[in-house]
């Protein structure tokens, strides 16, 4: 079944066309990667998918519903969550609180019941804390629970963003360069984590520059070039696609798969 359906998507900034008439389908339960050289429009695409930018033309259907024009928080409520290329942590909060923010939609108390700390609020806090700890342990972050986010090393923060996004309880997780800046060990851990997320039934849409990771982790790959679709297929198909090798990789490349 198709979870996300993109058709005729176009976005330009001033005179520069970042995305031009782009279409693709993301099947449910898979890891679907988007690759392409810098400036190919990957992040622009992500920002449109998560409601931060509005496309000039085209349509984006999530679970059969048009989502263009919805505010990001409405999209989150529909089951779409994301991480960011440049970390967007809440550095002013503890690790646990960061992930508890992710539980916002799974709890519902308002400002006034919170101010009076009604019994329901206390119960809800306990539940949010449980959900957050679960997401943290899934990402192997339990030992950082009480630390402040701004005291953590980069690799941990990358996983913390994922834990926070998972706490939302998404059906589709958009990951923007999760392995950027990670060393080999951390990248291997990230690969395992992405597969684990997928095995939980969460569809992953991945943008990543680390080709080794993309080839190992993806079920399907979309190659972008100048905002248009250059190729789409399984990792094996992409690796053997002549257009991809020529236009994007500039020659024959042997992957260490």
């Amino acid at each position: 079944m198709t979870l996300l359906e993109v058709q005729g998507l176009t976005k330009s900034f001033g005179g520069v066309t970042a995305i031009a008439d782009l279409g693709f389908d993301v099947p449910e339960g898979q890891v679907y990667s988007v690759i392409g050289p810098n400036g190919a429009g990957k992040t622009t695409l992500f920002n449109m998918l998560s409601g931060i930018y509005h496309p000039d033309e085209g349509s984006i259907h999530f679970q059969g519903r048009e989502i263009i024009g919805l505010q990001p928080h409405k999209m989150a409520a529909m089951g779409l969550s994301r991480t960011f290329q440049n970390l967007q942590m809440f550095f002013n909060m503890s690790v646990l609180d960061n992930v508890m923010v992710g539980c916002h939609l799974r709890t519902g108390s308002g400002l006034f019941s919170a101010a009076l700390r009604l019994p329901g609020v206390v119960r809800e806090e306990r539940e949010a804390r449980r959900l957050a700890r679960e997401a943290l342990s899934f990402c192997d972050l339990e030992r950082f629970v009480d630390q402040r986010a701004d005291a953590l090393p980069y690799g941990v923060l990358k996983r913390l963003e994922i834990a926070r996004a998972l706490a939302v309880g998404p059906k589709l997780l958009l990951m923007d360069e999760p392995a950027a800046g990670l060393n080999d060990t951390e990248t291997a851990e990230m690969q395992r984590l992405i597969r684990c997320i997928c095995e939980r039934g969460i569809t992953v849409l991945l943008v990543e520059h680390n080709m080794g990771l993309v080839m190992r982790v993806s079920d399907r790959i979309l190659v972008l070039d100048y905002g248009t679709r250059l190729a789409e297929g399984t990792p094996l198909e992409i690796q053997n696609d002549r257009r991809v090798i020529e236009a994007y990789l500039g020659g024959e490349v042997q992957y260490a798969v």
Binding site: I52, H73, F90, H104, E125, R164
Partner: peptide, 28 residues
């Protein structure tokens, strides 16, 4: 009480990163 609640976390999240707060489902 407010700070130590769902609403309080939403406030601090807003301060930390407005765009991330929105993506977590907070109506900023």
């Amino acid at each position: 009480n407010i700070i130590d609640s769902r609403s309080g976390r939403a406030l601090r999240a807003l301060h930390g990163s407005e765009v991330a707060a929105e993506m977590m489902g907070i109506d900023t």
